[in-house]
Amino acid sequence: MNWTWFHKLGSPKWFYEISSRWLPWLVILSLLLLVTGVVWGLAFAPAERFQGNSYRIIYIHVPAAFLAQATYVFMAIAGGVGLIWRMKMAEIAASCCAPIGASFTLLALLTGAIWGKPTWGAWWVWDARLTSMLILLFLYLGFMALQAAIDNKKTAARASAVLALVGLVNIPIIKYSVDWWFTLHQTASIKLTEKPAMPAEMYYPLFICLAGFYCFFAVVLILRLRAEILHREHKTGWVKALMSNKC
């Protein structure tokens, strides 16, 4: 297998240059997907038989919750790669993932609470799914606090990577919480292996929103990575050359 891409990805300079070419396409793609998915979901999808129109929160809630978990897995893998290969870009990626993931976990929790009020009659219950998502938020916050508490970037990256890897145990707990402790939160409506438990005119916009959220994540992660690269590499020749070219 050819590993040159892996080594290239490890170079902040290469990433800074190539990502400026990716960025406009990703922005266009995520805008198209999000606008299509949201308009379709809000205005054209039919109402749900029991929940009426409140179910339309799904087009935000489910993508946000998916992304919250995917970002965590990505962050832990990046942290692990940083631990094993001492790859600077992986360490930067892990640190950039945390605030994005935390914000989407918060979004999933808030939209869940707002959806819960008309559907369950309560903003919050100590249901297993809700509790494990709250733990995910605390894991993100703990990761960020640990990064901020240690001045040495290398030590901070190593310590927080260990935390991220240990916290990985929470991800399957979130996923299976609805099956293990069947309390209030419903089980998964969409699965990789089965047909979705809702009609096509409801899940098409959901899939489009999901894709849109993932593209959006790519955009904001690249934006954060570029800012962080500029900050960490500002003493290097290539950043200085880049800056003096611009003025």
């Binding site: 009426g52 129109n53 800012a227 900050h231």
Partner: peptide, 29 residues
């Protein structure tokens, strides 16, 4: 939105705020 306008629109509003925040922070930085 039936009787659920406040719930639905507040969710989409919060989502917009979270997304704009995520774009604005790295750009300002």
């Amino acid at each position: 939105m039936g009787k659920h306008g406040l719930y639905v629109w507040s969710c989409y509003g919060i989502a917009a705020v979270v997304m704009i925040y995520n774009i604005w922070v790295p750009l300002a930085q």
